[in-house]
Simulated scan of single mutants.
Amino acid sequence: MEYKVVPFVASIDPKKGNTSHVVEQLQETIRNHVNLGWEYVGLESVITYVQPEYGCFGLGAKPGFTTSNQMVVFKR
């Protein structure tokens, strides 16, 4: 079995202001890959820690932080 994982970054249109636009984006991503022969498995969240940047002598330093990324999983 072969698996494929693609990032999913939803973009909300402030004029529409609801989640239906996000649903349409996810449906389009799934539809495109199904048309290429992939079967949708699920949407997974990957939590990542981004290391801090210390800057030069502390100038421009940025603290580390945790971020969450959505990944769409397919198989065939």
Rank of each mutant, 00 (worst) to 15 (best):
E28Q: 14
E28C: 09
G37H: 07
V9N: 10
Y54N: 06
V22S: 08
G60M: 07
E53S: 11
Y49Q: 08
I47E: 13
V41R: 02
M71K: 13
F74A: 01
M71R: 13
S45D: 12
Y40K: 03
K75V: 06
E39V: 10
E53R: 08
Q27S: 15
T19I: 08
P63H: 02
G37S: 00
C56F: 15
E24I: 08
P7R: 14
S45K: 12
M1Q: 04
G55V: 13
H21K: 01
V34W: 13
N35M: 12
N69K: 11
V34I: 14
H33P: 02
R31N: 15
L36Q: 15
N69A: 12
S20L: 11
H21C: 07
P52L: 11
T67E: 15
L26M: 15
V34P: 11
H21Q: 06
V41T: 04
V23C: 06
L43V: 10
P63F: 01
E28D: 15
V46Q: 14
K4S: 05
G42W: 05
R76T: 05
S20P: 01
Y54L: 06
S45V: 12
M1L: 07
R76Y: 05
S11Q: 13
T66I: 11
K4V: 09
A61F: 01
P52S: 07
E24M: 13
E28W: 09
V5Y: 14
Q70N: 02
V46M: 11
M71S: 07
G37N: 01
C56P: 05
E2W: 00
E28I: 07
L26W: 13
K62V: 04
G60I: 04
K15Q: 02
K16D: 12
Q70M: 00
M71C: 12
F8Y: 11
G60H: 09
V6S: 07
E53V: 04
G17R: 05
Q25P: 02
S20M: 09
G64C: 02
M1C: 04
